[in-house]
Design a protein around this nucleic acid. Structure first.
Lengths: 180, 180
DNA sequence: CCTTTATATATAAAAGATTATATATAAATC
DNA sequence: GATTTATATATAATCTTTTATATATAAAGG
């Protein structure tokens, strides 16, 4: 999948591994994230497969940039993937729920503390979605002729916001029930 | 992490790899799932590490069962993990959002079709949480002295329900905005 | 003056997870 | 009579992801 994130970005403009990591962190990290090392190894594989091509851009006093561009093959693969419908729903992994599920033998106070901590973390995250990320989307929208893109990006930001709101509501509800 | 799911179940009662797969499918699959092959290889590793012990239960006309039980070491490890607080929020991966994010170049009708399809899938899933899974929790609660456990299990079921409701609302909202 | 942050790429090793395949039989469905 | 479902375990190969490490320097902050 990371493959398609990288092709997706490179379809807009050429970028280095470093650029792609920055782009992901401010835009897709909400629903798709990757470590730096994975991005570099995936780019390498994409080049071997002829999906992207690269050239070195020399820099003074900084390591040279290796800038990638998408090839026709890559563009075809991306468009093919985009048009392929998803027939299944995504499965989640939530460590907190896992702990909760097996926490009956534990001191009841301990799981409450953990729930309260997670609530704080999710509240901070919600604020992030309501400020920073919205700004990023608006910037993109204002500076380009990508009105369609901005609508789609706003929809993905909105998902993050709704998710965090739901999560916080669930934690509140759960704490209340466990305190009885 | 799968390690702790298996130890968590074995802390209740002895079970085979097959049993554990069944248990996960009806209870934790909402927030933690695993393929059969991963369960078997993880059990093997847990035995090598002295976290579980196994014995063969012969059966006629069926392959013999390999039944695992948790050891003291395993129990200690599980309790230690349970009491360790989670300092970070879980990151998600959502293919649908990824596609949506890069779908501007695509035929706009295509992404709407995919959104509608996902809505159907999530609606089915919501129904599942409201019927079958609730029944499983109630069964457990009625048949045992595990009232505390049942409250925690209900909380994890409730998460799945809230998540699906949120998801469906988001799809509706997004379809509406894109149809304008 | 010292530490941190930002810029930039790369690889090795390990862990986690999926896909595919093999074997075996009873019971139920078509 | 043929296929599917359920019972049961196991491994090989591959793919995905994380953790850790190495190198190098300018600018900004404390």
């Amino acid at each position: 999948m990371l493959k398609y994130v990288l092709l997706g970005f490179l379809n807009y403009r050429n970028a280095s591994g470093y650029d792609l990591k920055q782009l992901m962190d401010v835009s897709t990290s909400n629903f798709w994230h990757a470590k730096q090392s994975q991005i570099y190894t995936t780019l390498k594989k994409l080049e071997e497969d002829g999906m992207v091509a690269s050239h070195i851009e020399p820099q003074e006093s900084r390591p040279n940039r290796k800038v990638y561009e998408i090839t026709e093959t890559g563009r075809d693969d991306l468009k093919n993937w985009l048009s392929q419908p998803l027939m299944e729903i995504e499965s989640r992994k939530e460590k907190l729920l896992l702990k909760l599920f097996f926490s009956a033998q534990l001191d009841p106070e301990k799981i409450l503390t953990q729930l309260r901590l997670q609530k704080t973390l999710h509240k901070d995250n919600l604020e992030k979605y309501q400020t920073i990320t919205k700004g990023v989307v608006q910037q993109f929208a204002a500076s380009t002729d990508m009105a369609d893109d901005a609508r789609l990006w706003e929809a993905t930001r909105r998902f993050g916001e709704l998710y965090e709101e739901m999560y916080i509501r669930w934690v509140d509800e759960t704490i209340e029930k466990l305190e009885e």
